Simulated scan of single mutants.
Amino acid sequence: MNKISLQTGLAGALILMSGFAWSGDVKLYDKAPSVEELQRQLTGGDGGEVRKPRTRAIVFGDSTPAESEAPAAQPAAAAPRPQARPQTAQTAQPAESYSPPPAPAPAPAQASDRAIAFPINFSVNSSNILPESVPFLESIAGLMQKDTSMRLIVEGHTDKSGPAARNAVLSRERAYSVTNYLIDHYRIDPMRLMPVGKGFSEPLPGMEPTNPKNRRVQFRIGG
């Protein structure tokens, strides 16, 4: 089974209730939810017919992300081929070369605004997953096995403790660690998982950046 490697991979107060905390479009769970609950939260559906989630663009680099779903790129109309000029013995000219118009740029990848967050525990300053976090991963694996077309973005987040550069690397390593665990233990197709490290750039709303609850792994549907 192929793993996703770091070298080849991409790039309001909380109210505690019923085992989860609500924070905007993110639900932070403190115990492993059922597959049905995950499906309702991530898709907005009831476990039957899945409603199309609201999406936002995932843009890497310095581009500005779109706030709503980007329309599908339309193919550019083919430019008319220039007609050759009539040639005579006195005015023979080389045939004009023709360059086709450039292909349209691909639309940016899309990600749902809805997300679920798990307090996945790792060894100190490490990406090794601790056994108490396995039930959370079992829930995610069960969802992906139920809906075999679903692709998920796996986001690693840290709190603001420690150097920013180290947190950025650590969050990415942890996202890849979770991704590889799902691949190795549940045979999830690597193409369905997109790990990314966020460092402490996105603390939970209403929480201080140094709050340990910001150390989490989030999942959202990716296009």
Rank of each mutant, 00 (worst) to 15 (best):
M1V: 09
T8H: 02
G9R: 15
A11W: 15
A11E: 15
I15K: 15
L16E: 14
L16S: 13
M17E: 15
W22E: 15
S23M: 13
V26M: 05
Y29G: 01
Y29C: 02
K31A: 08
S34T: 15
E37Q: 12
T43N: 05
T43P: 03
G45A: 06
G45H: 09
E49I: 10
R51C: 01
P53C: 00
A57K: 08
G61Q: 05
D62M: 02
P65V: 00
A66T: 05
E67C: 00
A70R: 11
P71I: 13
A72F: 09
A73F: 02
P75S: 07
P75G: 03
A77C: 00
A77N: 05
R81L: 10
Q83R: 12
Q83K: 13
A84D: 13
R85E: 15
R85H: 14
T88S: 14
A89Y: 11
A89M: 13
A89N: 06
P94I: 10
A95I: 09
A95T: 07
Y98R: 07
A103G: 03
A107K: 11
S112I: 10
R114G: 03
A115P: 08
F118K: 08
P119A: 00
I120M: 04
V124S: 01
V124N: 00
N125H: 00
N128P: 00
I129F: 12
L130V: 14
E132T: 06
S133Y: 12
V134G: 00
F136K: 07
L137D: 13
S139G: 08
S139T: 11
I140S: 07
A141Q: 11
G142T: 05
M144C: 02
M144G: 02
M144H: 05
M144S: 01
Q145G: 06
T148E: 14
T148M: 10
T148H: 09
E155Y: 06
H157G: 00
H157L: 04
T158I: 01
S161Q: 11
G162V: 04
G162L: 03
A165N: 10
A168M: 05
A168Y: 02
V169N: 09
L170E: 09
S171R: 08
S171V: 07
E173I: 06
E173A: 07
E173Q: 12
R174E: 12
S177Q: 06
N180I: 12
I183Y: 10
I183P: 04
I183V: 15
D184R: 03
Y186I: 04
R187V: 06
D189N: 14
D189V: 07
R192W: 08
R192E: 05
R192D: 07
M194Q: 09
M194C: 01
M194E: 09
P195H: 08
V196R: 14
G199H: 03
G199R: 00
G199M: 03
L204H: 04
L204T: 11
P205K: 09
M207V: 06
E208V: 11
N211E: 06
P212W: 05
K213P: 01
N214T: 10
V217N: 04
V217Q: 04
F219M: 02
R220I: 14
I221V: 12
G222W: 11
G223L: 01
